[in-house]
Each structure stands twice: as C-alpha cells, then as structure tokens.
C-alpha cells in the first residue's frame, strides 16, 4: 500500500508529470506514491522526471489502458 494515491486518468502530457512533481514535493523522505495514468506517454515521461529529480520508481504495472507507477521519495 502506498502512502498516497494520485489518479490522473483522462489527463494528458504534461499533466501526469506536473501533478506527480507537485505531490512528491509535499511528501517526506521514504514515503511512497501510487500514480495511476492512462497517458501512454507517461511510460517514458514519468521515469524521466523521477530520474531527473532523484527519486525512485519501485514498480511499474500495465493493465489494459491503465499504467500504475509506485514511486518512492528519496
């Protein structure tokens, strides 16, 4: 179970990235965020953001249109 869940279904690039960054900014070190998106571009964009800002993707799941990332704040 993640500490926080962020649902961005229906939102397109760059919103999943911007909303993820906003959420991560509020979180404390070690906390986890579950991001749910149906933007295909997020498959590459979210890892690009997370790598750049130094946090970590623990898991990526794809089920149909839906992509779920588990992200841990550094």
């Amino acid at each position: 179970m993640a500490d926080l869940v962020l649902n961005t279904l229906g939102k397109k690039c760059p919103m999943p990235v911007l909303m993820t960054k906003k959420e991560l900014k509020k979180m404390s070190s070690g906390q986890t965020l579950e991001l749910i998106t149906d933007d295909r571009g997020a498959l590459k964009d979210v890892p690009a953001l997370v790598n750049k800002i130094g946090d970590k993707i623990l898991e990526t799941k794809e089920a149909g249109e839906q992509i779920t990332f588990m992200i841990q704040k550094a």
């Binding site: 690039c13 760059p14 990235v17 911007l18 993820t20 960054k21 690009a48 750049k52």
Partner: peptide
C-alpha cells in the same frame, strides 16, 4: 508544455 515540464524537472 516545455516550460512547465522543465520546471517540474528543475
């Protein structure tokens, strides 16, 4: 889009 995303990526 580039400006706001660049901001998110510092």
């Amino acid at each position: 889009i580039l400006g706001t995303t660049g901001d998110a990526m510092d």
